[in-house]
Design a protein around this nucleic acid. Structure first.
Length: 481
DNA sequence: TGAAATGTTGGGGCG
DNA sequence: ACGCCCCAACATTTC
């Protein structure tokens, strides 16, 4: 590093490192665009930090996303470099190897990343390397949206109003051609073992998803073309392709929220339907806004009175929930969709999360951790704030006494039962009338459908009515101190 | 981005 | 014709 301390190298000579993290794309990538504009050769770098826990489904996704990015960047002329280690060590080593004059990245807003990046920036600057960071993953940065008195928002609707007033930057085009640096050592993606081997449980993921920038773009186009018009109604029906399914692409930054915003706004015939979709997109910004300003919501109840909540320790109940064997078909269908495809429809996430928290009285953090391991779109800010929303412990949360009835929710949003049949095949022959409450079906109906409760499909692990009363009683206790 | 309990209303059957 | 009861349908309150 000593040679770097002799003074800032002139742009055009010393290469730029673009440290890619959750921005695995070329389009609308401000750090990449800035490196291209700087004029010097560009070395795109991805660092796998072994200390950073990444869920199993997310690791699978990351492999695909890096493979796609590597191919795309190679075609642009600047091959992606892959390295493992602590970011500080990797960056300073690589900077030394190539005599880097600049390191650019796009900002991350998670508590750990903020402090890590702050330290990194200081260290690199000390080595006389130019450091610049950008916003690539949010519509507006967490500090750009403020109340009249300058505070962060705690409630979504006013946040949404304020966010709509922020003049977003126009999305940047992908760089056409990049000058690379030859002979830079890179690790092999296959050696990172991001994909499961034995057993290979990723078949359902492969069938469902196309990680990478191209997959993200075609999802967006398909959504705008065929689903957006009916979005306000169909988004709540889990057996339809009524939602965009862009969440995993957004998490890894394969597509930019501003690109989505712009494409949706420019689409013909959007109107109120597109407004409803952009509102949901803004929930993602809101979650990051909350986590940035209240980093403790990752692990602590935002409403501290929930600290006294008598969470149950019940391995058997958690096991039934996570495997989709609760005996409540809509819950089980959701949990199996998650296990098989790495994704769960949003309506069903609320039902399944409510069931774990309120029917089984299991701590929301336990559910959040399970989701983080199994979701391809696992995102700390979105996941944690959503679980707190369901638990009633969050900032802008549903009240605790709002307890979903899994039977009614099923009948309302999966009236024909097709969602249940798709993921709970042992109920496949049961008529819609009973598919959300097989325990109420007459003996003859069950027989004809080949269902034996307690054998081919579980009896309910808890009685809804009793579980509801128990949850309300527990909540009354903590309220009364 | 609930559900269940409780309250109110109004039509129709019936003595 | 009239009052009474029943109960579905809708509205309000409570958890």
């Amino acid at each position: 590093m000593s040679s770097l301390k002799t003074g800032r190298k002139k742009a055009g000579e010393s290469p730029s490192i673009v440290w890619l993290r959750r921005d695995l794309r070329r389009d609308d990538n401000p750090a990449l665009a800035a490196a291209a504009a700087r004029g010097a050769p560009v070395v795109p770098l991805f660092i796998l930090d072994p200390r950073e826990k990444i869920g199993a489904a997310s690791r699978w996704w990351l492999h695909g996303s890096l493979a796609a990015l590597s191919e795309n960047l190679g075609r642009l002329g600047a091959p992606l470099i892959l390295r493992r280690g602590a970011p500080m060590d990797v960056l300073s080593a690589l900077a030394g190897e190539i005599g880097a004059g600049a390191v650019f990245w796009n900002r991350s807003y998670e508590p750990q990343a903020v402090s890590r990046d702050k330290a990194l920036k200081a260290s690199l600057l000390e080595s006389d390397i130019e450091v610049r960071s950008f916003n690539a993953s949010l519509l507006a940065e967490p500090w750009e949206v403020k109340t009249g008195s300058g505070d962060p928002y705690k409630v979504f609707t006013p946040f949404w109003r304020a966010l709509s007033q922020v003049p977003f930057d126009t999305p940047l085009p992908a760089p056409g051609k990049l000058a690379g640096v030859g002979g830079v050592a890179t690790e092999g993606l296959a050696g990172w073992n991001l994909r499961p081997a034995k057993p290979d449980w990723a078949g359902g993921l492969r069938d469902t998803w196309s990680p990478g920038e191209a997959g993200a773009r075609s999802r967006l186009e398909a959504f705008i073309e065929s689903a957006m018009q009916d979005y306000p109604r169909a988004r709540d029906l889990p057996d339809r392709e009524g939602t965009s399914r862009l969440s995993p692409h957004l998490h890894w930054g394969e597509i930019s929220p501003r690109r989505i915003w712009q494409s949706v706004r420019h689409a013909q015939g959007g109107g109120t339907a597109s407004e409803a979709f952009l509102r949901e997109l803004a929930w993602r910004d809101f979650a990051c806004h909350l986590l940035y300003h209240w980093p403790e919501i990752e692990t602590e109840n935002w409403k501290r009175e929930f600290d006294a909540f008598p969470w149950a320790r019940n391995e058997a109940a958690f096991d039934a929930w996570s495997k989709g064997l609760t005996g409540y078909p809509i819950v089980d269908a959701g949990m199996r969709q998650l296990w098989q495809t790495g994704w769960m429809h949003n309506r069903v996430r609320m039902i399944a999360a409510s069931f774990l928290i309120k029917h089984l009285l299991i701590d929301w953090r336990v559910g959040a951790a399970w989701f983080e391991d199994t979701l391809v779109d696992a995102d700390l800010a979105v996941n944690r704030s959503s679980w707190q929303w369901v638990a009633g412990s969050g900032a802008d949360a549903a009240p605790y006494f709002r307890i979903f009835n899994p039977v009614l929710q099923g009948e309302k949003f999966d009236a024909g039962g097709d969602y249940v049949r798709a993921f709970v095949p042992e109920l496949g022959k049961l008529a819609a009338k009973y598919i959300h409450k097989p325990w109420e079906a007459p003996r003859s109906v069950l027989e004809e459908a080949g269902v034996v409760l307690g054998e081919t499909y579980p009896a309910p692990v808890v009685d809804h009515r009793q579980a509801r009363e128990r949850a309300l009683a527990a909540w009354r206790d903590i309220r009364n101190g």
